[in-house]
Design a protein around this nucleic acid. Structure first.
Lengths: 192, 192
DNA sequence: GTCTATAGTCGGATAGAC
DNA sequence: GTCTATCCGACTATAGAC
C-alpha cells in the first residue's frame, strides 16, 4: 500500500509493450519514446527499469534463448539413435511453439538480436552447430548436413502461423515433427 | 576516354557495396554514409544515382522478387499433379539458389523489404498464398497447408549455406528438393 | 519512481558551386 | 557527376528537480 501502482507492474508492462511493438514493427523502428508512451510513462522512467534498449531486447529474447540452448545441449549428452533424434527434434518443436509470440521479433530483426547476444553468441552458434551435426546422424555426408538444416527450418514454419488460423498446438507439433523427420529420412533421390 | 572512371561503374559499385553491407549488418544498421564511404564518394553523389535509400533496396531485391513471382504464378496456370508439383517446387529452388547472395538481406530485414515493396506487396502475398495452397494439393486439410509451408521453409535452407562449405549447387538443389517433397508426402503420423 | 529538460549524435535528404 | 555545406528530424542517454 505504499504506491498506487504495484512496483513490479511497471517493469512487466514495459516488457509487454516492448514485445508487442517489436513484433509489430521491428526492433529498430521502435523507439523508446513509443514504448514509454504505450505504457503511460516517459522515456526517462523507462531507463530506471532497463538501462538500455538492448537490455530490454535481451530480457525479451532471454528465456527463449535459454530454452533453445537447453534443448540443443541435449545432443551433447544423448547418444544418437532414431529415438533420441525424434525426442530432441520434438523438444525443439516444443520450444519454438511455446515462444511463438517472440517469433516475429526474432525473425524480423536478427541483426539486433545478434548484437544483443554479444558474448553469448559464440556459445550459441557452437551449440547450434553441434546440434545440427548430431541431428545429421553418424558419419554424415554434406547432403546429410543439408537435410539436418532443412529439418530445422521446417520446424520454423510454426512461427509463420498467423493467429487467425487457429490450429491446435498439438496438431502443429505433430505435423511439423513428422515433416522434419521425413526430411531427415529423404536420402537417395528416386529419379534424378 | 571522357572520364577516368566509366560512368556506369559508379552505379554498379554502389549496388555492390550496398548489397555487401546490407547482407553483413542489415539494412537499418547500414547508413548511406557507410555505403558512400566504401565506394569512395560522398552521400550527396549517391543521391545522383539513387533517389533514396529505399530505391537502392528495391534495386537489390527487385530481380529476385520478379523471379519468385514468376515461378509462383505458374501455379495459376498449371493443373495440380505430382509431376507439376515437383516441377514448380524445383523452379522455386532454382530461384532461391540463384539469388543466394541476396538472401541475407531478405532474411535479416524483412520489415524493410516489406516497406520497400509497398504497393507490390499485396500482389506478392496473394500470389504466395495461392502458390502455397496449390502446393498443398486438392482439397487440402489444415495439416496439408502446414506441410506446404514447411516444404517452402525447407528450400529456404539454401540461404543458410555458408560460403566456406562449397557444396555444388546441383547437390543443394537435389537434396533440398527431395527433402521438400518428402515433407509434402509426410501424412498420417505412424505412432502419435 | 517519475518527471522536465537537454545534451549529443547520427540519420536521410537537399541546394548549389564546380 | 561529384563535391561542400547544411537542414531537419529522431534517436539514445543523462542530469537533476520533485
Amino acid at each position: 500500500m505504499q504506491h498506487e501502482t504495484t512496483p513490479r507492474d511497471t517493469k512487466a508492462a514495459i516488457h509487454r509493450a516492448a514485445l508487442e511493438l517489436f513484433s509489430g514493427q521491428g526492433y529498430e523502428k521502435t523507439s523508446l519514446r513509443e514504448i514509454a508512451e504505450q505504457v503511460g510513462i516517459t522515456k526517462a522512467s523507462l531507463y530506471y527499469h532497463y538501462s538500455s534498449k538492448q537490455e530490454l531486447l535481451r530480457a525479451i529474447i532471454g528465456t527463449f534463448i535459454e530454452d533453445v540452448r537447453s534443448v540443443m545441449a541435449g545432443s551433447d549428452e544423448l547418444e544418437w539413435s532414431p529415438e533420441s533424434q525424434r525426442e530432441l527434434l520434438g523438444g525443439y518443436a516444443d520450444v519454438i511453439i511455446k515462444h511463438r509470440t517472440t517469433g516475429p521479433t526474432l525473425t524480423r530483426d536478427i541483426g539486433a538480436v545478434i548484437a544483443a547476444l554479444d558474448e553469448d553468441l559464440g556459445d550459441l552458434i557452437a551449440t547450434s552447430r553441434r546440434f545440427q551435426l548430431w541431428l545429421a546422424g553418424p558419419n554424415p555426408t554434406l547432403a546429410d548436413r543439408l537435410r539436418a538444416a532443412a529439418a530445422i527450418e521446417c520446424l520454423g514454419a510454426a512461427l509463420s502461423i498467423t493467429p487467425d488460423d487457429d490450429v491446435p498446438e498439438s496438431e502443429i507439433r505433430n505435423t511439423l515433427l513428422e515433416a522434419a523427420l521425413a526430411v531427415l529420412a529423404s536420402r537417395t533421390p528416386p529419379t534424378n
